[in-house]
Structure formats: structure tokens, C-alpha cells
């Protein structure tokens, strides 16, 4: 039977790119953009995207009554967080004068300080927007077929700082060395956007769709 993949929709931004990219690599799987906790609970895999501000994301998750569905999926089946879908797994964000997050992992979400200088003699721009090399610091099935330090597409002003550094699956340098991806058991989450990262991004999504835990 074809597998079911839920792309969690809590009203924060356009999920078309994510769902199309997953469909592109998922063969005959049923890929559904959904806020239905029943479908999420029944799905074989879950993709948790997100964009926008931390407070809005948390409010939207609550409004859609998805807190438990997200946390359960994150603890029980192949789960891929993307961008805000990584950040809200932490405990606390400094965004919007401080926002409590889902708290699956101890850690904070901090803004780039804007003090580091770039190579053009101007301060590094915020958001960090564009293609940066991702340094794989663990071996992981989701890195299969992807060269270390391949460039992925980022767009973000905040970065996660997990307390348990053994969570870190990749780092990227942008004025500061930050966490580009985390991995724990059945969960993988990226600060970058695999759905916008051309071939290497599709490779990562394909690895996720085929990830056997």
C-alpha cells in the first residue's frame, strides 16, 4: 500500500513548494497538506514546515490544536522539520520579545547579531539569505548521496542553539557557526529549505521519504 505523508499545515505560509517537492520524489505516496490530527497520526511520515515569526507560528499551532499531534509525530515516526519547523521544537525564542516554543528539545533560538563583517566590507546581511555550505557533522541516512559541504538554500534571521550538542547533524558558518540541522532517533530537522535547494535538496527529501527507522 502506498505510504501516506502528511505536510502539516497550520496556516503559516505557502506549503505548495514543500508538497510539490515531496511529491516529486515520493513516487506513488499520498502527500497531503493537512491540519487534521487524525491524518497526521495515521501518516507514515510527517513533514513540518513553517515560516514567519515565532509568536505567530506558536499561535497558529495552538489555534489549529496541533501541539500534541506534532509532538507525538516527532516522537514516533519519520519526521522532518524545516526552517520554523526546526526552530519551534526548541524551548524558547528571543523573537517577538520572547516566545515559548514547543519545547521538545532544550535550547534557544537567537537572532544573528548583525555585527560580523562580510567579504564586501559591509556587515553581513540579515536575513541570511541564499546558498551556504552545510557541514555534515554526523553520518545519517538523510545525508546519503549528498557531498559534505554541499550548498543548501537558507532564508532566516534566527538560529537554534540546542543545549545538547549531540543533537547537531550539521553546521553552517555565517559570521558565527550555527546549527544547520539536528537529528535524534526518528527526527531530522533543517534550518535550510531542502524544497528550494535544487538537486541536493531533492536528494535529501528522497532520503527522507525512503528513510527506514
Amino acid at each position: 500500500m502506498a505510504q501516506k505523508i502528511a505536510v502539516i499545515d497550520y496556516g503559516m505560509g505557502n506549503l505548495r513548494s514543500v508538497s510539490k517537492a515531496v511529491e516529486h520524489v515520493a513516487g506513488d505516496a499520498e502527500v497531503r497538506v493537512t491540519d487534521d490530527p487524525t491524518f497526521i497520526a495515521a501518516a507514515d511520515r510527517v513533514v513540518f514546515p513553517g515560516q514567519g515569526a515565532a509568536r505567530d507560528c506558536m499561535a497558529a499551532i495552538s489555534e489549529h490544536h496541533l501541539n500534541r499531534a506534532i509532538l507525538r509525530a516527532a516522537e514516533s515516526k519519520p519526521f522532518l522539520g524545516i526552517c520554523m519547523g526546526l526552530q519551534v521544537l526548541m524551548g524558547y525564542s528571543y523573537e517577538n520579545n520572547g516566545t515559548e516554543l514547543l519545547g521538545l528539545f532544550d535550547g534557544r533560538v537567537k537572532r544573528f547579531d548583525g555585527l560580523a563583517m562580510g567579504d564586501s566590507g559591509l556587515p553581513l546581511k540579515i536575513p541570511h539569505m541564499g546558498w551556504s555550505p552545510v557541514h555534515q557533522v554526523t553520518t545519517h541516512p538523510l545525508w546519503q548521496g549528498i557531498d559534505d559541504r554541499s550548498r543548501f538554500y537558507f532564508v532566516h534571521s534566527y538560529r537554534v542553539v540546542p543545549e545538547d550538542i549531540s543533537l547537531i547533524a550539521a553546521t553552517t558558518d555565517y559570521g558565527v557557526r550555527f546549527t544547520a540541522a539536528i537529528a535524534r532517533d526518528n527526527l531530522f530537522a533543517t534550518q535550510f529549505h531542502p524544497e528550494k535547494s535544487a538537486d541536493v535538496g531533492l536528494q535529501l527529501l528522497s532520503n527522507f521519504v525512503n528513510w527506514a527507522i
Binding site: G118, D119, H128, G130, W131, S132, P133, R151, D173, Y174
Partner: peptide, 8 residues
């Protein structure tokens, strides 16, 4: 290696 300049 850092952020690449983008060609659009």
C-alpha cells in the same frame, strides 16, 4: 566557504 553571491 561562506554564503554564495546569487545569480538571478
Amino acid at each position: 566557504m561562506g554564503l554564495a553571491k546569487r545569480i538571478i
